[in-house]
């Protein structure tokens, strides 16, 4: 603690983790219930296909969906990093574990970006 101030990425990771927590708790469940349960079961009227496609093709929709996916993945990676380190007492391997967990989140985010850019034409 008496060592000079070190620059650490933790604040930025934590901010994304916090944002990811909000996304995973508030936005993902709404999307899942709406498109995974309510619309298939006919609880709410299904939107017109052309209209939904037009919404999905809008850059802002793509950006928002990318944000939801990427932040939720960072949230999961952050939790997994500390769960693994504390449960199995692997804190000394933090650089490697952090690289793997955040790396996986980055790969997932890249895959989401690729899908969002290519899947809807």
């Amino acid at each position: 603690m008496t060592s000079p101030r070190r620059v650490t990425p933790e604040p930025f990771v934590w901010l994304m983790f916090s944002a990811g927590g909000v996304v995973a708790a508030l936005i993902l469940p709404v999307l899942l219930v709406l498109f995974g349960v309510a619309i298939p079961l006919g609880w709410v009227e299904a939107p017109d296909h052309a209209h939904l496609l037009a919404v999905l093709r809008h850059p802002l929709t793509r950006l928002a969906l990318f944000g939801v996916c990427a932040l939720a993945l960072v949230h999961a990676a952050h939790r997994l990093r500390f769960t693994v380190e504390h449960t199995f007492r692997l804190g000394r391997y933090d650089p490697a574990i952090a690289t793997v967990t955040y790396g996986a989140a980055a790969a997932g985010a890249a895959a989401a970006a690729y899908l969002l850019l290519t899947a809807f034409g």
């Binding site: 603690m1 060592s3 101030r5 070190r6 650490t8 933790e10 604040p11 934590w14 500390f82 504390h86």
Partner: peptide, 14 residues
């Protein structure tokens, strides 16, 4: 904050 913002400060807390 200089002390708390260190990795051994608040960031260790889960």
């Amino acid at each position: 904050l200089t002390i708390l913002a260190q990795p051994d400060g608040v960031w260790d807390c889960t």
